[in-house]
């Protein structure tokens, strides 16, 4: 319909449709309502907060001097165990996640039923916190590093598998079609078609998950699943805060070292 000159200037230009604006407004409203309701009903004991600075000072005073002499006796072995839990857990997770990820990728496995089954496995692995996985495996295998390793592995399957499947789905179909056209068996299509394309993403995912697992394996000991968390829990329960300090410093050092290592490896590999 031809419009009279000048009407374009009078027309109101809106960035969003009314439905979009309504949806955004609903989100804002929901956020405000959630925050107000939570703030009004959350259990708040003012006396605890008033003496927080004093308690914090008390905590730091008790942590000083840091009991470094305890490190070779009670911390070092636990720290190494934590690293073993994280690394073995990541390895096991990768071994289990790659087949599940391949089943979940729609272009690798063009069977919708298998895709959904694999996605269900990945979602249920991610929905359960690693501490809960640890509790379950402690119930089965008893307390110790085995429960921790399996907890880390089962929690990581969902993460690694999901990202690996997404990387596979983003692979360019050109090389894969060419391989299929010359009659390559499916194993060759995987190793020569998909693998070169998903290799950088694969290493990035594995390194990222290992970094996360180093942090997570440090807390598994709080529920008895081995590693440095056991040393931390013991020291806290005995109120030996100068030992808590040395454990926390050890965790801090390992986490920073892991992050530097991952950054360097990523530069080399990707």
């Amino acid at each position: 319909m031809p419009s009279a000159p000048g009407s374009a200037a009078a027309r109101a230009w809106n960035r969003f449709t009314p439905a979009e604006r309504l949806a955004r407004f609903a989100v804002y409203l929901a956020v405000v309502a959630a925050v107000v309701v939570s703030a009004a009903t959350v259990e708040f004991i003012p006396e605890f907060v008033y003496d927080a600075p004093e308690q914090m000072r008390d905590l730091l005073v008790r942590m000083w001097p840091v009991d470094f002499a305890h490190y070779p006796r009670g911390v070092h072995a636990a720290l190494v165990e934590t690293l073993h839990i994280a690394s073995l857990g990541t390895l096991l997770a990768v071994a289990l996640a790659v087949p599940v990820g391949l089943l979940a990728a729609r272009n690798v496995t063009p069977v919708p039923a298998l895709n959904y089954l694999a996605k269900l496995v990945l979602v249920s692995s991610r929905s359960v916190n690693s501490l809960v996985w640890a509790l379950l495996f402690i119930a089965v295998f008893g307390p110790g590093a085995l429960a921790g390793t399996l907890a880390i592995a089962f929690r990581s399957i969902g993460f690694v598998g999901k990202l690996f499947a997404e990387a596979c789905e983003e692979a360019h179909p050109g090389t894969i079609e060419a391989l299929a056209a010359v009659g390559a068996p499916w194993a060759s299509i995987l190793t020569h078609g998909y693998w070169p394309q998903v290799k950088p993403a694969f290493w990035a995912i594995v390194l990222l998950r290992w970094d996360i697992n180093v942090r997570e394996s440090a807390v598994l000991g709080l529920v008895g699943a081995g590693g440095i968390g056991v040393a931390l829990n013991t020291a806290i329960n005995l109120f030996q805060w100068n030992r808590v300090a040395v454990v926390l410093l050890a965790i801090f050092a390992v986490v920073i070292a892991a992050e530097i290592l991952v950054t360097q490896l990523r530069k080399r590999l990707i």
Binding site: I45, F48, Q55, V219, I236, I256
Partner: peptide, 28 residues
């Protein structure tokens, strides 16, 4: 930011439980 990311939230929660006492505020 690096200091805030270094420890798992559960470990940070332990320290806040000591400083503020048991309850939701420490978790927050």
């Amino acid at each position: 930011i690096a200091a805030a990311r270094a420890f798992h939230p559960v470990i940070v929660a332990i320290l806040f439980v000591k400083a503020i006492g048991f309850g939701a505020i420490a978790g927050i």
